[in-house]
Design a binder for these strands. Sequence first.
DNA 1: CGAATCTTTGAAAGACGTCAACATTGGTGG
DNA 2: CCACCAATGTTGACGTCTTTCAAAGATTCG
Lengths: 228, 228
Amino acid sequence: MKEHHKHVTCENCMSFKESMFSSFQNGQISELNHHKSCSFYKKGQAIFAQGNYPRGVFCLNEGKVKIFSIGEEGKEQIIQIASSGDLIGFRTMFSGEPYKVSAVTLEDSNICFIAKEDFLNLMDVNQNLRNNILKELSLELGERAKMITNMAQKSVKDRLAFTLLILDKVYKQEQINLSREDLANFVGTATETLIRLLKEFKDKQVIKIHTRKIEILDKKKLLALAGI
Amino acid sequence: MKEHHKHVTCENCMSFKESMFSSFQNGQISELNHHKSCSFYKKGQAIFAQGNYPRGVFCLNEGKVKIFSIGEEGKEQIIQIASSGDLIGFRTMFSGEPYKVSAVTLEDSNICFIAKEDFLNLMDVNQNLRNNILKELSLELGERAKMITNMAQKSVKDRLAFTLLILDKVYKQEQINLSREDLANFVGTATETLIRLLKEFKDKQVIKIHTRKIEILDKKKLLALAGI
DNA sequence: CGAATCTTTGAAAGACGTCAACATTGGTGG
DNA sequence: CCACCAATGTTGACGTCTTTCAAAGATTCG
């Protein structure tokens, strides 16, 4: 468990080189650092909520965050899991709308904040940042077309396989650590259905279950199931 | 039916003021016009295809275009229907990837083309265009989060209601004119299921069916069904 | 240790997709 | 201009995947 209010500067941020700001020069980095503030968020804490108006962007120094949209029955649909180095909430900087999604930490996290005005100023001045943002928006748009297609055309089992592969990348060498409900809300199914399918995957030696955590044993079988 | 090779200049383009270029000044408009070429596409003709690399962007002067992604079984999932004034294929200008979706005309259309290099030069020079593009990418990203949630959580009936409301905006005062298969591929269901639900909506006086075309009679009922 | 939360299992109903046959439509050539 | 054919649309029957509801079993954390 991480300590509270760990102070991080952009200069010594472990996630800096994979971040949207990776192309910044020394002077720009310290300027960025000057404009950011850094906060500790406990597991389960909200970073922003659907319907609110944004005041800036959040840069994830350490931790994991679920980005989800809430359907009419109040059920969460997880769209994305953000992790160290990811910038979140920047979409709303340009759209003029309130947030269309909510963000909640999945574990204790250190998250930096850059005010909207400062961020937009950086965008104006820095072409690399602009290009990185354009690229990221574009990549995400492509991913979401794929996700829509999966939701519309694939069985729950196939989607679970697909989701586990995504999570494998997010959790890297760690085991996947999500509640059954969050996992179900990412796959887009009922918790009970998810549990039954996990058991099936376990019986087929595709995954190993350590109570809450999930270890992927056979990525090839998952790839075949997900149809990639 | 429109005649072939109708020549359109940006200056006299009926869709110009709703387009991404609406903020251009006179000199910029004629420069834009100088860099574009204009082609006639017959109904059902492909504009670009998933997997190919983009050479530029397409500006829809007149007509309608389905944007879809193809699932593993070869089934189309329609993501969006573009109409007059819409710019399509600009996502791939920034991502460096090949197209993740395909575009095919739904009716005879006039479509202008702007080469990638020219378009990116315009982006560099023109802050309004840049902001419009950023805004459009952001808005679309928000819509797709909503679409993912709908696909994952709502019944086919609810999604049909939602889709009809989207199409009502696309077709404005006209009646919706899509094949049953395309409509099913937008809703994300089988053609047969779609037909059964259309009949149900017809019996409930929500829509009126003129063979292929669909007229919306009761938008309120649709809004209630779609849960908006 | 116990309360609260999260997870698992079972049974039953319903929504949806698939297959096969049939009907209608619109475009084409005679 | 009409008849015909291919493409598109419609209907019914059936099976199965998935959800829902209810209850019991684990686990976690104070």
